[in-house]
Design a protein around this nucleic acid. Structure first.
Lengths: 336, 336
DNA sequence: CTGAAAGCGCTTACAG
DNA sequence: CTGAAAGCGCTTACAG
């Protein structure tokens, strides 16, 4: 591979001149610049990333920490990963993706060795075991998902409380007075996925304030338990006129279950949910929903991280940013 | 961050001794080793990745080139990415994931700058625009997916021809003589996704050889076109007793369509397909299938790539390896 | 069994 | 507007 020395020789200048021509940090005469550009093109010169990183302590690489759980509904994950990768690239960064179970180890390994300029953490839990290592790292980071203790951290997440209230209010305004809420499965609570109880508690509180009956159930994550649980929930609340679903695997199975039972939406039952546009498309889901906005969250996270990295004054964290979610009306609800 | 110099001082030895203690490339006295290990632990020393890469021209990073298409059924992608990341890590590599549209540029950028030791390419097409850049790169690589011209390349892919024959034979042995085949959507053919015609042509040839009638249709990739196309296909072949589906989005919608039409499987119709275990689980698909084995393919690809990277003799490519796929019988077929 | 030193390919303060 | 030189943190051939 060509080095900066090769380019300098070919262009008849010094290495420093080539370097400055590349960085634009000092003015170069037009003729010199032309010779350098020509040499770079001919030699197909690309600066060596390792040498640059060694010299500048900057890698132009962001670490992305993803956690996978066997019991998880994985299709949803990619919706976060792609916009993160795309936004990173548009800001000049590449993505080093780590999927191993021991996220804290991966975090330490890549930060201590200087492989990354910053980190994005996905699937953050209430008491996330990666946070101690994160606070000890010298690189900045952004979490997607709200942990219990946000001290010293940058966090981006959906406003799940607001989303829950939006959906309860929507059904309340249409006259519904008895609702069913299906939440994420039990293991999400157990694991500390705070979005599960943040949504649930806000929905319950709002329903209580509005005098609405709300039957709350943990949904399942695997067939055939999912379909069975649906039958149980529906049988258990024969008077319910509205259904709020906050559970990807369960809502994906819902059209089939409702069809089986001969329940028409919205004629017999009003249904609202919380998921993303892409998810709705993949699973052909026709329900009114609050957009979980994974691409917006991913984009915000990376933009915030890039800002932190480039902040010359080593400014402290920006804090927690909760994205308020919009209702997308798909006419799966009706007045009662 | 602590450097090797810090460790050397703390342990009262030279930098080279620390380096050799770390690499194990020469013997170190037990006392010295102990002092070094202690210093490393106290200082939390991790070698700087940039410096090591500069010196050794090895990064312990593999590039992963993923291509996304707006019209694609993205959930399937993650099944390849995860096992690749896991296998890489178990072999000591991290993954630099590139998702940008211009894969050739990403490839050149990361190889020329020495950011990666090797590359895995996903979604390889018949006339893949990344292959010229790939052949010019100094790092080895492995493709997942068979291109038209494999000269000088390492390829891992499913034996789609064998999979097609397995499925046709399975139905033939049960007495079926009139079948429907639903293939990937037209845009997959247009894009050069060779698996589409490899499967189709092998199925057609086998059916012809066995004297079976085979109605071949391109499936759709988006609702509501998917459901409509299913009705067209089924209406168009009222005498068909067996259905072969090679289309993720279409097969995901099939249970609902069959239920709508009151078609019972296998009583009224035998159904077989080609997809992965995870896919079947996510979409609750109950059909007999040939396992598309994404995790096996990802693992084989990375193992082969690691072998190429570590081959001291710069051995040439291993060639093309087609994984023969197994039939998983889920009792969605019956004798006719 | 251990050390001193060269050098990987950059960037940038210093000098002109 | 341009150049010579130091130094980032490693690894390894050379020397003992």
């Amino acid at each position: 591979m060509a080095t900066i020395e090769d380019v300098a020789k070919a262009a008849g200048v010094s290495r420093s001149t080539v370097s400055y021509a590349l960085s634009g940090k000092r003015s170069i005469s037009p003729e010199t610049r032309q010779r350098i550009d020509a040499a770079i093109k001919i030699l197909k010169y690309t600066p060596n990333a390792g040498a640059r990183a060694l010299r500048t302590s900057q890698t132009s690489v962001l670490g992305l920490l993803v956690q996978f759980h066997d019991d998880e509904f994985a299709p949803a994950m990619l919706q976060y990963i792609l916009p993160i990768a795309d936004t990173a690239r548009s800001l000049g960064y590449d993505i080093l993706m780590m999927t191993e179970a021991d996220g804290a180890e991966a975090l330490t390994r890549t930060t201590e060795s200087g492989m990354v300029d910053g980190l994005v953490l996905l699937d953050v839990t209430d008491d996330d075991p990666r946070l101690d290592a994160l606070r000890a790292a010298r690189q900045p980071s952004v979490l997607v998902g709200l942990p219990g203790n946000t001290r010293g951290l940058d966090v981006v997440d959906l406003d799940f409380e607001g989303a829950a209230r939006t959906l309860v209010d929507h059904l309340h305004e249409l006259g519904h007075r008895e609702l069913i809420l299906v939440t994420p499965p039990q293991h999400v609570y157990d694991r500390g996925g705070a979005y599960s109880w943040r949504f649930r508690d806000a929905a319950a509180q709002r329903a209580a304030a509005l005098g609405i009956g709300l039957a709350v159930h943990c949904g399942e994550s695997q067939q055939p338990a999912i379909n069975q649980s649906w039958h149980d929930f529906l049988d258990g609340s024969p008077g319910a006129t509205g259904l709020i679903v906050h559970n990807d695997a369960s809502v994906a199975a819902l059209p089939h279950v409702l069809h089986q039972r001969g329940i028409r939406v919205p004629d017999d039952l009003s249904v609202v949910s919380l998921y993303s546009q892409d998810f709705a498309r993949w699973f052909s889901l026709p329900y009114t929903f609050v957009d979980s906005s994974p691409s917006m969250l991913g984009q915000l996270a990376v933009e915030q991280l890039a800002r932190r990295i480039q902040a010359s004054d080593h400014a402290g964290p920006h804090g927690t940013r909760l994205l308020s979610a919009d209702l997308v009306d798909r006419d799966s609800t009706r007045e009662v």
